[in-house]
Simulated scan of single mutants.
Amino acid sequence: MTTAEAYVEFGSREARGVSPTYERLSWAVARDDALLALLDTLPPGKRQPNLLFAVVRWLGGPVDDPATFHDYTVTHWPAIEVELRTRATQTNESGRCAVLLPVLAALPQPLALLEVGASAGLCLYPDRYAYRYGEHQVGSGEPVLECAAGGMVPPACVPQVVWRAGLDLNPLDVTDPDDVSWLEALIWPEHAHRRARLRAAAAVAAADPPLLVRGDLVDDLPALAAQAPAGATLVVFHTSVLYQVPAARREAFVRLVRELPGHWISNEAPEVLRHDGLPDAPDAALHNVLALDGKPLAWTRGHGQAMTWFG
């Protein structure tokens, strides 16, 4: 896929109906030869729309108007390029816990959670958040995570978590204002509710910080998994992470995680982690596939805002 095609796909499948600002910007970049030429000097994984738009916003640049975005990006390209090469899309969306919850609540309790690609670890607190599936509410406290769920009976309670740990190449610290400002820049412009949710989830994590380990998802996973307490069900999980991992490394991770004790929950795009016999997605928007131990269960939207159960 060319860089232009990647921006068209992002605009039409991810941003459409979710962020008019990013939809408009994506289409503009896809037709902007000057910006495409600059982006094509970067490694493929550093050209993605989410990363570019977040870096420009984090540096104080404009995203509301494609023309001013073009001018700012061309003028400030040296500074933007430095950030693109060093940063990653570590969108730490606690809302994704809403699509993980039905699986987590059904596993043998208590749980030892280990998230791969944990960012700041905000998805390691599914027991501390509240959830609303239509009229059905589960749990208590803040934030309240809303999810439009079809084809399933919502869980009756939150899981019992006795250990939580995360593995990331560059773990972020919710007590570091610079790290939190980067997490806020990754939230799309119109999504004030997600910014409020981030702050509430960050407060939960800061009050009881998780164990976050800087490391590789293959080389360092077994040692961290071995720290999980006996008597708890180990759950290794990840969501919208593996697209950043080269295919061969991804396959090595899948082989490894299948051999670990406990369970494996994945929530990834179907072209990133393939499953046979998937039903049609609910619509043309970009969906992830939620799976337990390699068995697909549901279509989910990227920020946890909706899920369609079929498993």
Rank of each mutant, 00 (worst) to 15 (best):
residue 142 E to G: 05
residue 167 L to N: 01
residue 145 L to I: 14
residue 148 A to P: 12
residue 152 M to P: 06
residue 134 G to C: 12
residue 166 G to F: 01
residue 162 V to K: 07
residue 193 H to F: 15
residue 133 Y to E: 04
residue 162 V to R: 04
residue 157 C to M: 15
residue 148 A to M: 15
residue 158 V to A: 02
residue 165 A to G: 09
residue 141 G to A: 00
residue 151 G to R: 02
residue 147 C to D: 05
residue 131 Y to M: 04
residue 173 D to N: 01
residue 154 P to T: 01
residue 166 G to N: 05
residue 193 H to D: 13
residue 173 D to A: 08
residue 137 Q to D: 14
residue 181 S to D: 09
residue 148 A to T: 15
residue 191 H to F: 02
residue 194 R to L: 11
residue 190 E to W: 07
residue 142 E to P: 10
residue 172 L to Y: 06
residue 147 C to F: 07
residue 184 E to T: 08
residue 178 D to V: 12
residue 179 D to P: 06
residue 176 D to R: 04
residue 159 P to I: 05
residue 191 H to Y: 09
residue 170 N to M: 15
residue 163 W to Q: 09
residue 181 S to L: 10
residue 168 D to G: 00
residue 166 G to R: 00
residue 189 P to A: 01
residue 134 G to R: 10
residue 147 C to W: 07
residue 153 V to H: 13
residue 159 P to K: 07
residue 180 V to K: 02
residue 146 E to G: 15
residue 195 R to K: 06
residue 156 A to C: 09
residue 145 L to G: 02
residue 135 E to D: 11
residue 156 A to L: 14
residue 168 D to C: 04
residue 172 L to N: 05
residue 187 I to F: 00
residue 169 L to K: 08
residue 171 P to C: 02
residue 149 A to W: 04
residue 182 W to S: 10
residue 150 G to H: 12
residue 170 N to H: 12
residue 140 S to A: 13
residue 142 E to Y: 14
residue 131 Y to A: 01
residue 132 R to S: 06
residue 168 D to L: 05
residue 180 V to G: 05
residue 149 A to F: 10
residue 151 G to D: 02
residue 144 V to Q: 15
residue 162 V to L: 11
residue 140 S to T: 12
residue 153 V to R: 03
residue 163 W to K: 04
residue 181 S to W: 03
residue 192 A to N: 15
residue 150 G to Y: 12
residue 182 W to N: 03
residue 156 A to W: 12
residue 171 P to I: 08
residue 159 P to N: 03
residue 145 L to S: 08
residue 174 V to W: 02
residue 182 W to Q: 09
residue 140 S to W: 12
residue 161 V to Q: 08
residue 185 A to L: 14
residue 130 A to T: 06
residue 164 R to G: 09
residue 135 E to S: 06
residue 143 P to T: 05
residue 174 V to M: 01
residue 156 A to I: 10
residue 181 S to H: 07
residue 190 E to R: 08
residue 140 S to G: 09
residue 151 G to M: 00
residue 189 P to R: 10
residue 176 D to V: 06
residue 156 A to G: 06
residue 177 P to Y: 03
residue 185 A to G: 07
residue 177 P to E: 03
residue 165 A to K: 00
residue 174 V to P: 00
residue 144 V to R: 10
residue 167 L to E: 07
residue 184 E to P: 01
residue 189 P to C: 10
residue 184 E to W: 11
residue 183 L to D: 11
residue 184 E to A: 14
residue 176 D to W: 03
residue 185 A to M: 06
residue 172 L to S: 01
residue 191 H to A: 09
residue 142 E to N: 15
residue 132 R to G: 07
residue 155 P to M: 06
residue 185 A to T: 10
residue 182 W to E: 06
residue 158 V to C: 06
residue 195 R to A: 08
residue 130 A to G: 07
residue 158 V to R: 01
residue 168 D to Y: 03
residue 173 D to W: 01
residue 186 L to R: 06
residue 152 M to E: 09
residue 132 R to K: 05
residue 189 P to S: 04
residue 159 P to D: 01
residue 150 G to R: 14
residue 193 H to I: 14
residue 191 H to I: 04
residue 132 R to L: 12
residue 177 P to F: 05
residue 174 V to R: 04
residue 189 P to H: 08
residue 131 Y to V: 00
residue 144 V to Y: 14
residue 168 D to K: 01
